[in-house]
Design a protein around this nucleic acid. Structure first.
Lengths: 189, 189
DNA sequence: GGCCTCGTAAACCGATCGGTTTTCATTTCG
DNA sequence: CGAAATGAAAACCGATCGGTTTACGAGGCC
């Protein structure tokens, strides 16, 4: 194991940014961020151009873990149908956590409004990756319209994560039948 | 016509709050709000308890128009199936507007995080009303599980509006087939 | 005219914003 | 040992935050 017992200044900043912006939104101040990370503002502005770049880097750093926890393992041998459902099973499980606040990438884009904000761009890329996964699986599974199905699935993903995040729905018994219906209608075997 | 040619101080504040928070988010300052409304801060704090209450009142005031533009007319004689699709047709049309930023009620809840914020409570009520409409139509249309269908529809509504709002999807050719698939699977005639 | 209400403009409050700078203690390394 | 690099602490910057208060002018009513 190469687990680092001692985090670098940079890592502590990225982690604090991820944690606090997820809980309080991008409105969080740099003073609060630095205090939580145990890092001086001077160090922050040596490591990052600005607060905006720190937020973008913080989202970027989590992107690998985000897709890793959602997507099936690389050596997964199940059918595309099951592999897609796996993603939504993972989402439903995450949504059950008491501190779940919805997908951080969707939240960032909604809070920032500006689509050209560096953090918005990162969020957009992450979601494009997830959509690409859906489309590839849809194609391989013989969906009648892989592009349409992928758009439907990412729509359900964002809708479910948003509604669970604001506490409007607990998703129980909702996601699986919905996704299954869409997969069936697309002729996925 | 009883159209008011002259807006009251209160009306100007509510309109400015609705416009600016939709464009810039709830982060907007009271100075900016007052300047845009042509109203002094003194008047604001005579009419409203706080900025939070102004935001809540601004969302509340729009709620009637929100459901009115989405829902079919009271004397609409079409089938529940068509009446539900009407809502999503309206959403797709609104999403086509160049300044569309997604559903303001969903955005408010995501930005505020706090579910007990007065504006969050208003947003929650509005969405509960829309969900109730879906459920009533589902029941009347003979859906096998009206509760499930209503949850699916509001999920699609929020997901579609969120993705269109952040510019991730233009919804064209997406909503209608998705909703139709769900209605069919629920056995809606 | 005199009074009272209404609302604007603007000063003011302490706190915080994103960002910069200075100071000083510690660590690293030749 | 001594020089250089690092980074924490904190003062500081102008601007803005939500909110309060003061001052003044424009109307209506007796």
């Amino acid at each position: 194991m190469t687990t680092e017992v001692k985090q670098s200044t940079r890592e502590r900043l990225l982690e604090a940014a991820a944690t606090l912006t997820y809980r309080d939104g991008v409105i969080i101040g740099v003073d609060t961020l630095c205090k939580a990370a145990g890092v001086s503002k001077r160090s922050l502005y040596q490591l990052f151009e600005s607060k905006d770049e720190l937020l973008a880097a913080s989202l970027e750093e989590r992107s690998a873990a985000f897709v890793a926890t959602l997507l099936p393992a690389a050596d997964d041998s199940r059918s595309p149908h099951e592999r897609i459902l796996h993603v939504f099973d993972q989402l439903e499980e995450q949504a059950g956590a008491p501190d779940f606040q919805g997908c951080r990438y969707l939240a960032a884009q909604i809070e920032l409004k500006d689509q050209n904000h560096p953090a918005s761009r990162v969020a957009h890329r992450v979601k494009a990756n997830l959509t690409a996964f859906f489309r590839a699986e849809a194609e391989q599974g013989g969906a009648s319209d892989p592009d349409l199905l992928a758009r439907q699935l990412i729509l359900v993903f964002d809708g479910a994560s948003a509604r669970a995040g604001i506490g409007a729905d607990r998703l129980t018994g909702l996601i699986t039948p919905t996704v299954a219906t869409l997969l069936d209608a697309a002729g996925m075997h």
